[in-house]
Design a protein around this nucleic acid. Structure first.
Length: 263
DNA sequence: ATGGTGGAGGGTCCA
């Protein structure tokens, strides 16, 4: 089963790119982030025409996540637990989770957190703590294959940044962000791409629109898959598909794809 | 010096 994650930076602006990518890559499941529209504005008909069902958590202008699948989508959860108790982000559409063919998948759009320090950075760290709690209390105890894909807005190490010194105080690279990401992984998850490419450097999933970043390959690796042990046992491949980033009117991110053996 | 670019929406905010 091929599962992809793709931050599209507006599903409406990106629809031609997304449709041609789905046709070329043929993922079984596609986890999308930054839809920047409400459910009613989601282009479901065009996506259904390619054979995909869609479950969407939308929001006007910002955020928005979706799960697309060629197979039935079951037991959908919209939103990360813990928002109400913290009195925040009931309106931020950053998490959707469902089961496809026995695999629990989630589409994650983690807060960016810039500038640091500040309230947005604090919010990012609180959101990461909530994600950790959900993984710890619900997902891992299920003992099911779980694949958490998305835009984590974290470069796990300096090997994942084109300019580590320049980004030292960026929310994507701050020690607090990396520590929270490590704490999540150290619950017993596997970071799929790094597990299969342990010594790789300079492999990115995001390039800023400005400054000729794509042409200079000034990128960051911030889009990841975290797998439960039951999913990691089935991991056979994880690749970054750079093709969509080089097209006209691209997203600033490019897809990451994992392949899991049949269960 | 200045996000130098892009998306949403119609102000600026966000990344």
């Amino acid at each position: 089963m091929k599962i992809a994650t793709f931050n599209v930076n507006s599903i409406k602006a990106r629809l031609p790119r997304v449709l041609e990518w789905l046709e070329a890559a043929q993922p079984d499941v596609a986890l999308l982030q930054e839809l920047k529209c409400e459910e009613a504005g989601f282009p479901g008909l065009e996506i259904e025409a390619l054979g995909y069902k869609a479950e969407v958590l939308g929001q006007k202008s910002y955020n928005g996540v979706a799960i697309l699948s060629r197979h039935p989508i079951e037991d959908v959860r919209r939103g990360l637990p813990g928002a109400d108790e913290m009195g925040e982000d009931a309106d931020q559409a950053r998490y959707i989770e469902a089961t496809v063919r026995g695999v629990r998948v989630a589409s994650i759009y983690l807060p960016n957190g810039n500038p640091t320090p500040g309230p947005k950075f604090d919010y990012k760290l609180r959101w990461m703590a909530r994600l950790k709690t959900h993984v710890e209390e619900t997902l891992l105890p299920s003992e099911q294959p779980v694949a958490l894909g998305g835009d984590y807005n974290v470069c796990p190490t300096d090997a994942d940044v084109y300019d580590p010194e320049g980004f030292a105080d960026d929310a994507l690279c701050r020690p607090e962000s990396r520590a929270a990401f490590r704490a999540l992984v150290n619950l017993g998850l596997t970071e799929a791409w790094r597990a299969l490419h342990p010594n790789a450097e300079g492999k990115y999933s995001y390039w800023d629109y400005g400054g000729g970043a794509w042409q200079k390959d000034n990128g960051l690796r911030i889009d990841h898959f975290l797998l439960s042990p039951q999913a990691a046992d089935r991991l056979v491949a994880c690749e970054i598909d750079r093709t969509p980033r080089g097209k006209e009117k691209p997203s600033d991110h490019t897809p990451v794809v994992v392949e899991l053996q049949a269960g």
